[in-house]
Amino acid sequence: MLNPGKSYESPAERAGRYLRMADQVRDLAWKASGAEVKEAYLDLAMQWVFLADEARRERRAANEA
């Protein structure tokens, strides 16, 4: 959900938020009872990590410009 009170989030802040989301989803995976549910949560966690990596690349590109 978007935070209407915050107008700008830096790539580093976004990466941190994405990694926190990945951690939360991994926790859900370990608590899940079914293998399919665990796998879905772990897949989602990997997507959050991918987004964090993208934000880090964005930050590096901005720093190099």
Rank of each mutant, 00 (worst) to 15 (best):
Val49Tyr: 14
Ala29Gln: 02
Leu2Tyr: 12
Val37His: 10
Val37Cys: 02
Ala35Ser: 14
Asp27Asn: 10
Met1Asn: 03
Pro4Asn: 00
Glu58Leu: 07
Glu58Ala: 11
Ala61Phe: 03
Ala40Cys: 01
Gly34Pro: 00
Ser10Asn: 04
Ala12Trp: 06
Asp27Ser: 12
Leu2Pro: 04
Val25Ile: 14
Glu13Ser: 07
Glu64Tyr: 07
Asp23Ser: 09
Ala32Trp: 08
Lys6Pro: 02
Pro11Phe: 10
Met46Thr: 09
Leu44Asn: 11
Glu54Arg: 09
Ala29Phe: 06
Lys31His: 14
Glu36Cys: 02
Leu28Phe: 14
Glu54His: 08
Ala29Gly: 08
Ala40Val: 04
Lys31Glu: 15
Gly34Gln: 14
Arg17Thr: 11
Ala12Gly: 04
Val37Ser: 13
Ala45Cys: 03
Ala35Glu: 13
Arg20Leu: 06
Ala61Val: 11
Arg17Met: 07
Leu28Asn: 15
Ser7Phe: 14
Met1Phe: 13
Met1Ser: 09
Ala15Met: 01
Lys6Leu: 07
Trp48Met: 02
Ala55Asp: 03
Met46Arg: 12
Phe50Gly: 10
Glu58Met: 05
Ala55His: 00
Gly5Asn: 11
Tyr8Gly: 02
Pro4Cys: 00
Ala61Gly: 01
Ala32His: 02
Leu28Val: 02
Ser10Ala: 11
Leu19Gly: 00
Asn63Phe: 02
Leu44Ile: 05
Arg14Ser: 07
Tyr18Ala: 13
Ala65Arg: 03
Asn63Ala: 11
Tyr41Asn: 09
Arg17Lys: 13
Ala62Glu: 15
Arg20Phe: 09
Val49Phe: 09
Val37Glu: 15
Ala29Pro: 03
Glu39Leu: 05
Leu51Ala: 13
Arg57His: 01
Arg59Val: 04
Arg56Ile: 11
Glu39Gly: 00
Val37Ile: 10
Tyr8Gln: 08
Trp48His: 13
Met21Phe: 15
Ala55Met: 02
Ser7Gln: 13
Pro4Thr: 01
Leu19Phe: 15
Arg60Val: 07
Ala65Gly: 06
